[in-house]
């Protein structure tokens, strides 16, 4: 493992280009991921985690677009790549797992065929050979009876099994970076843990770096060495996971950690302790475009700014 970062994201801005002032939804986000490292990205819904991830593989949906910054992957800025070069990278070097295993697979094709596509696309294999490799890929994600399961359709599988198929697809070509966007959110709690362990096990065995996106700090703490906290389109804190839990600096991170239930604290001396919730609502895009987006919420508001008044 070298010290040169695998992914170096600098000052990423994502927004809707065009008329008037550009409306940036993700602003000035930057972090690095080393080869083989697991990096977590936490934040609530709408904080820009998924947009950040999608912009890495250039799959943002119009009218959203990257409006600034650099996405250096192995030293090369992905923003400058041709579409064709980007396609070669996508799936092969950078793979992605999505949140919804129920809808992320084509309902009309067998899972084997959908895995085999990876070998046809990136390894130049014929369908017959690719189909054989798909059996191995299914076996590697611990799907029982893979020889039969390759012929199954997604509707014949449970959510957990489908997510395993997604993992098999993503890791089929041994990518350098796996982006997992809330890979367990849609699954049963019992299955969540298995799927996470599987991702961790396979990636560390293959030396694949992981960008794990979640709103669940517990998930991140289990898997990631470092973590970034996103809040309203900005990366407000980036630390070693251990340090972050021990000493959260940003008020929003403190709020997030305060909202976690703790074992044994329910029947404290002072009676039942309530979970802390984070006041207020996510700011709408209008107020996001104003300078102090954190003003929109009380506990996050900096006392100094409060004194000075604001938006």
């Amino acid at each position: 493992m070298s010290d040169a970062p695998l992914l170096d994201l600098r000052n990423l801005h994502v927004g809707i280009p065009g008329r008037g002032a550009p409306l940036d939804i993700v602003r000035d986000v930057g972090f690095t991921i080393l080869p083989g490292e697991a990096f977590g990205l936490v934040g609530e819904s709408g904080s820009g985690k998924s947009l950040t991830a999608l912009s890495l593989i250039r799959l943002l949906k119009k009218p959203l677009a990257v409006s600034g910054g650099e996405i250096l992957f192995k030293g090369e800025d992905l923003r400058n790549l041709s579409d064709k070069a980007m396609r070669r990278l996508r799936g092969d070097r950078i793979a992605m797992i999505f949140q919804e295993p129920m809808t992320a697979l084509n309902p009309l094709k067998t899972v084997g065929r959908q895995i085999a596509e990876m070998f046809v696309l990136h390894r130049g294999m014929g369908w017959g050979e690719a189909q054989k490799r798909a059996v191995d890929a299914l076996a590697s994600v611990h799907v029982p009876a893979p020889e039969e399961r390759v012929r199954a359709y997604p509707f014949q599988m449970s959510g957990g099994m489908r997510q395993r198929v997604m993992i098999a697809i993503a890791l089929a070509c041994d990518p350098d970076l796996l982006i997992a966007d809330e890979p367990t959110t849609a699954l049963d709690v019992t299955v969540q843990d298995e799927v996470l362990k599987l991702i961790a096990e396979l990636c560390s065995a293959r030396g694949t770096a992981v960008l794990l996106i979640s709103h669940d700090l517990g998930v991140i703490a289990n898997m990631c060495q470092r973590v970034g906290v996103m809040y309203q389109g900005r990366l407000v804190e980036e630390r070693d996971t251990y340090d972050l839990f021990a000493d959260p600096r940003h008020p929003y991170t403190q709020g997030l950690l305060g909202a976690l239930p703790r074992l044994g604290s329910r029947h404290g001396e002072a009676g039942r302790q309530r979970l802390v919730d984070i006041d207020g609502m996510i700011a709408d895009r209008e107020s996001l475009s104003r300078e102090f987006c954190s003003e929109a919420r009380n506990p996050v508001r900096d006392p100094r700014q409060r004194a000075g008044g604001g938006a």
């Binding site: 593989i57 799959l59 396609r87 070669r88 990278l89 996508r90 799936g91 092969d92 793979a95 992605m96 999505f98 919804e100 809808t103 992320a104 697979l105 084509n106 309902p107 094709k109 596509e117 990876m118 696309l121 990136h122 997604m166 697809i169």
Partner: peptide
């Protein structure tokens, strides 16, 4: 979603249309 999955596999648009 599965069309997005297909794109994330590195498929050309023509293949996304034909295959999925």
């Amino acid at each position: 979603d599965f069309i997005r999955t297909a794109r994330s596999k590195g498929m050309s648009e023509a293949r996304v249309v034909r295959w999925h």
